[in-house]
Design a protein around this nucleic acid. Structure first.
Length: 466
RNA sequence: GCUCCCAUCGUCUAGCGGCCUAGGACACAGCCCUCUCAAGGCUGCGGCACGGGUUCAAAUCCCGUUGGGAGUGCCA
């Protein structure tokens, strides 16, 4: 089978977009890009009870965020599985007519009773030779042949399943609607999918799907099952108990490039002793056969570390632009000055791992009154030299050049007079002007804050200190 | 229970029979730098799950044990 490789990503719209899904999508996307193939997005929306239309847009937005662009020529879709229901049913009938499937009228309860009575779990093939006609309440089951099914997996190699352990699975429900395994395979066949790259949890489904492929298409796709992402307890990441929503990381200020790079280091590593690599390198170097076989812990600490790295690599302009979504709250809008932020930006970049940490680091510049941290104030003004030195500093900086360098010189001079080290001496000044004991470099901050406001805040603090 | 998958520092990984007294990154600790906090630099801590084979030689190959995980629906 020649032609362009066709990969696919087939999420079901049942909630926020999962980081594990993001990784699977990335694998498919990268593979499609490096082979000049196609990435097909198919929304598997056939579970009437769980899916919500709103999540579909969420999936598309999330994919776009990590660089999987719906307008890229390698991107195809989205398709909706529900739209293909007639094809699923037609395929099922074809299987029935050729004798590869049969109807069964047993209820779930009856199957359970029989299993309990025989001591063997699952469906026992009771209706295999009863030659039942289609009818309400009757499910269509696939007649699993004897023998073994060998799955050739790009990451795991050869995996063998004894067909005796595979029960005659359901194709069509009692109400005539198709089941996942059928719909999934029929869609992949009709969409000409050549490579199925998905999470390991689907491996047990694969022999069943492979039998369907053989019966319906006479060919089998290239399979690849990548390890799942797990939490600290080594359990598969779950929407219920773990922080898995891609949207949440985005909202906290994780850069998409950092997320993509981090996700790709889970189960795979670029050549050499480096982990921070650009996307072009990933596309060039990534190989399915090099993907690890074991599950990987999604480590938020390491993600944050990657993100800090990416933040530091941004130019000040890019950084300020990336911060845009976090720049609206916390201070009166009219007091915000982008150019002021830009001046202090390089100093902020080395101090945050998440963009959401930025506002609290620069708000003193845009607030009319920077709130004073009580504990910090108490500590900074707890010495007998605090007030006298701050007065002296105030006197010195009230005139003359206004720059970080001259400010530093002024404070150093006061330090020499009072025999107090700069490291200690800056504390009262910092708390007085920024309200906090930590922050960007003080003198650069004051340079940006301006003389008038600096003096005003020093006076306020002096009054407060009594 | 049954089927399948997996097993290198706490975590993510490099390693695909000799280059390994096992390399890198995150985390952690210490030192340096330093106006706070970071960033950066240096150092340290720490691992081939266990037992048998195969081989001149095994983290690397084979078998078993143990330990994890996934699946086991008329969900996807």
């Amino acid at each position: 089978m020649q032609g362009t490789p066709r990969y696919r990503f087939a999420p079901s719209p049942t909630g926020f977009f999962h980081v594990g899904g993001a990784r699977t999508a990335l694998y498919n996307w990268i593979l499609a890009l490096q082979s000049n193939g196609v990435f097909v997005l198919r929304i598997e929306d056939t579970d009437e009870s769980r899916n919500e239309p709103q999540w579909t847009q969420g999936i598309i937005d999330a994919l776009a965020w990590i660089g999987i662009d719906g307008n890229d020529p390698h991107f195809e879709g989205p398709y909706f599985q529900s739209a293909n229901a007639p094809a699923h049913v037609a395929a099922a009938h074809k299987l029935y007519e050729s004798g590869r499937a049969y109807y069964c009228d047993l209820t779930s309860e009856q199957i359970q009773e029989r299993a309990k009575a025989s001591g063997k779990p699952g469906y026992d093939g009771f209706s295999r030779d009863r030659k039942l006609e289609p009818g309400p309440g009757r499910v269509l089951r696939f007649r699993v042949p004897e023998g073994v099914t060998v799955v050739h997996d790009e990451v795991r190699g050869r995996v063998e399943f004894d067909n005796a352990t595979l029960e005659d699975f359901v194709l069509l429900r009692g109400n005539g609607s198709p089941i996942f395994n059928l719909a999934n395979v029929v869609d992949d066949i009709t969409m000409n999918i050549t490579h199925v790259v998905r999470a390991e949890e689907h491996l047990p489904n694969t022999p069943k799907q492979q039998m369907l492929w053989e019966a319906l298409a006479g060919r089998v796709p290239v399979w690849a099952h990548v390890p799942v992402l797990v939490n600290e307890q080594r359990k598969k990441l779950s929407k219920r108990r773990d922080k898995v929503a891609l949207e949440q990381y985005r909202d906290e200020g994780v850069l998409p490039d950092a997320m993509v790079n981090y996700l790709m280091t889970l189960g795979w590593a670029p050549p050499g002793d480096v982990e921070i690599v650009d996307f072009a390198t990933i596309v060039r170097e990534f190989k399915l056969s090099a993907v690890n076989h074991s599950s990987a812990f999604f480590d938020i600490k390491k993600l944050n570390s990657f993100n800090g790295d990416y933040i530091r690599k941004l130019s000040p302009d890019q950084f300020v632009a990336a911060c845009e979504p976090w720049l609206s709250g916390g201070w009166p809008e009219e007091r915000f000055d982008r150019s002021v932020f830009l001046r202090i930006a390089p100093h902020v970049q080395t101090r945050v791992a998440l963009l959401s940490e930025v506002p609290s680091m620069i708000d003193f510049l845009f607030l009319a009154e920077a709130p004073i941290d009580e504990a910090a104030f108490g500590k900074a003004f707890g010495t007998e030299w605090a007030v006298p030195t701050l007065r002296a500093i105030r006197d010195r900086i009230s005139t003359g050049e206004w720059s970080a360098d001259s400010l530093k010189s002024a404070v150093e001079a006061v330090g020499a007079e009072h025999d107090v080290k700069l490291g200690k001496l800056q504390a009262p000044l910092r708390v007085a002007t920024t309200g906090r004991s930590v922050g960007p470099p003080l003198f650069e901050s004051l340079e940006v804050l301006g003389r008038e406001e600096t003096l005003r805040r020093i006076d306020a603090a002096l009054t407060r200190a009594g």
